[in-house]
């Protein structure tokens, strides 16, 4: 790892000011530190958000659960509020990485990084979350722009994520047995007559909504409604862990499991 200047501002405003040149924000550091070790990133400055105290925490706000950007996966997984309102989101958080990663890793960091195999992007997309930054509010559909790419601009910092509470939701992941990253992960959420299905781990451009699955489930919310579901393998990843065709198959399997688990 190349050395850098470490900064720990106390406010979002000061953190935004510190984001100049080759500076990088750090939340839990679960991706940034390994990336810096490999010298895939060599920032001049690391701006640690841990000193900004009002960024962590979970609250219910009307019909939404609002999670502060620096809230750890472990806190989300064990939050009574989240488990009651959106148990699927608590389950999703409880399946990220391993216990030590969940103790340090944060929702804001995960979303800002937008790893194509991360779990939270699927949760955000399927639940129709709103990403709140120091500058604006961004719908999840507009936030995830592709592999490791988001709508975040220069000096823009995620402060919270707001999840509307669905009627039913479930997340099913086929994890890589070593890394626990999703080879394929599917989140299904139903609110009234609207069904949203988001797929992570599979797409060449990161998380995506499966519109065919959504249409089928809007007509009939049952696993059988997904019989014969087609997923275009041409747009999916192929690597040492799974071919695109296998991933396309898994999308259907995971989506059915998620619907069945919704009950």
């Amino acid at each position: 790892m190349r050395d850098f200047n470490y900064q720990r501002p106390n406010s979002v405003a000061d953190a935004a000011k510190a984001l100049k040149g080759e500076a990088k924000l750090m939340a839990g550091g679960m991706t940034l530190i390994p990336t810096m070790k490999q010298r895939l990133a060599s920032p001049s400055d690391v701006v640690d958000l841990a000193g900004v105290k009002d960024l962590a925490g979970i609250k219910k706000d009307g019909n939404a659960i609002v999670i502060g950007a620096m809230t750890s996966h472990d806190e989300v997984a064990h939050s009574a509020e989240v488990k009651k309102a959106i148990p699927a989101l608590a389950d999703l958080a409880d399946g990220i990485g391993d216990p030590q990663v969940r103790n340090r890793g944060t929702i804001g960091g995960s979303i800002a990084n937008n790893d194509p195999a991360a779990d939270y992007p699927a949760g955000c997309m399927a639940l129709g979350a709103t990403i709140v930054t120091n500058k604006r509010k961004i719908a999840a559909d507009d936030f995830f722009k592709g592999m490791f790419e988001t709508a975040l601009g220069d000096g823009e910092i995620i402060t919270a994520v707001s999840f509307p509470i669905p009627d039913k939701a479930n997340y099913q992941k086929f994890p890589n047995p070593a890394s626990r990253y999703a080879i394929v992960g599917v989140m299904v959420a139903k609110s009234g007559g609207t069904v949203r299905v988001a797929v992570t781990g599979a797409g060449q451009s990161g998380v995506f909504r499966h519109k065919d699955a959504e249409a089928a489930l809007a007509k009939s919310f049952a696993a059988g409604a997904l019989d014969g579901l087609k997923t275009d393998a041409k747009k999916l990843n192929s690597d040492m862990h799974a071919s695109a065709e296998y991933r396309a198959h898994l999308v259907g399997v995971m989506a059915k499991r998620a619907v069945a688990a919704c009950g």
């Binding site: 470490y6 720990r8 550091g29 679960m30 530190i33 390994p34 070790k37 690391v46 640690d48 841990a50 472990d74 391993d98 216990p99 030590q100 990663v101 103790n103 340090r104 070593a178 890394s179």
Partner: peptide, 29 residues
């Protein structure tokens, strides 16, 4: 492993287990 996978470096920070190879010393201030 020095890549936050093996867990040989687990210590507790403020009562929670973490991988000390994937945390900067300055973060433990």
């Amino acid at each position: 492993c020095d890549t936050s996978q093996c867990g040989a470096c687990v210590v507790h920070v403020d009562g929670r287990s973490v991988k000390s190879c994937t945390m900067l010393a300055v973060q433990a201030e």
